[in-house]
Amino acid sequence: MRVERVVPDLTVTDLRSAVAEHSAVLGLRVLMDHGWIVTLGDEEGHQLSLITRDASAPVNPDVSVFVDDVTAAFARAEAAGLEIVHPLTDEPWGVTRFFYRDSDGRVINVGMHTDRE
């Protein structure tokens, strides 16, 4: 299993304002907008996600880690005895993912693109 991308996830109360603020200051543009999460980025691959409330999980993640084999990552999380907060799920927006909670209480979203929109 290989990590392909790591994206911080900031929980925000006003998505539109947060997008405007971070775009203005950081010069990032909208790469993805699902209405509840917006990912900003640049041409070099730097990304930042802003999220109000996750569409299918019980909690918002603190960070998203995209891998080339999410099933292997899930097996590793289970073998490590970590709390699985959101089960391995094929999401309707083309990502297979799961969430685990680390020992400091942070929620990590681990996923891979399974269908390009």
Rank of each mutant, 00 (worst) to 15 (best):
Y100T: 00
T96F: 06
I51N: 08
A55N: 05
L15E: 13
E44C: 10
T13Q: 14
G35P: 08
Q47E: 12
S64D: 14
W36T: 00
E78Q: 02
S17F: 09
G45S: 04
D102E: 08
V38H: 01
V12Q: 13
R101Y: 10
D104S: 15
E43I: 05
A18M: 10
P61S: 11
T52W: 01
H22A: 00
P8V: 00
L40T: 02
D42T: 11
E4I: 10
H46A: 14
R97V: 08
V107E: 07
L31K: 05
L82V: 04
T71Y: 15
A18C: 10
R101T: 01
P92E: 12
H34Q: 14
G45P: 05
T89V: 12
G27C: 03
I84C: 13
G35K: 05
L28I: 01
R106F: 14
D62F: 03
L40C: 06
E4L: 14
D14G: 10
H22Y: 11
A79S: 06
V12M: 09
H34G: 07
G105E: 09
H86E: 09
P8Q: 03
V110M: 13
Q47R: 07
D42V: 15
R106W: 14
D115Y: 15
F66I: 01
R101E: 00
V70E: 03
T13A: 15
V70F: 07
T13H: 14
E21Y: 08
I37R: 15
R101P: 02
A79M: 04
V38I: 09
T96C: 08
Q47T: 03
L48T: 01
N60P: 03
E43Q: 03
R116W: 04
F99K: 11
D54M: 02
T11S: 11
D42C: 12
L50Q: 00
W36N: 02
T11Y: 01
T13Y: 09
F99R: 07
D33T: 13
D9L: 14
I51D: 10
R29K: 11
G111V: 13
S49G: 12
F98L: 10
P87I: 00
T39L: 00
R2Y: 00
L28P: 02
R29F: 05
M112E: 15
E43L: 06
T71V: 15
P92C: 09
A73T: 05
G94Q: 14
V19E: 09
N60L: 04
T96H: 13
A80R: 04
D68S: 15
L48K: 07
V107T: 13
F74A: 05
Y100M: 03
Q47N: 01
H113D: 08
G41E: 12
V107K: 10
R29T: 08
I37V: 15
L26R: 04
V6S: 12
A73H: 02
G81Q: 07
V59K: 15
H86S: 05
E78S: 00
V12R: 12
I51Y: 11
F66K: 01
G94H: 12
M1Y: 02
H34L: 13
V95T: 10
W36S: 02
G45N: 03
A57H: 07
A75K: 07
D90T: 08
A55R: 07
R16C: 01
E117T: 11
A57C: 08
G41Q: 13
P58W: 08
P87R: 02
E43C: 02
D102C: 12
R16L: 08
